[in-house]
Amino acid sequence: MTARRCHQLPIAVEDDIIVVRRAVRTLAEAHGFDTFASAALVTATSELTRNAWSHAGGGVATIDVVEEGNRVGVRVTLKDSGPGIADLPAALSGGFSTARSLGLGLSGSRRLVDQFDLQSTVGQGTTVEILKWKML
């Protein structure tokens, strides 16, 4: 799998969520994603970027275009240095309710993408990486 780095964007203020989302949408559309795949990836990105902003006070979003064989995908990595997630299974089960999201943010995002990888260490931060392939 080869990856080409396209954007590295700060998540510091609420409006950065919109900036990250737009960068992902533009890239997905430029690589021929259909509207459904693009909406799924952009929505998952929005969800996870908002998490980094609201739970961890911000972080960094990295957006890559990846290629493997004859397929192409967009990968988004959200890294923060926030409090981390103490109970990962609960957070991913969808029953983990936070102030504003009904607890479906992480589990819902996972269902929208093809690959979902979450690493979190309490007191150090959380990194979540999502990848969506373009439908062949």
Binding site: R21, A39, V42, T43, S46, E47, R50, S101, L104, G108
Partner: peptide
Amino acid sequence: GIDVVDTY
């Protein structure tokens, strides 16, 4: 006019 509806 809304293009993204996330859980928020």
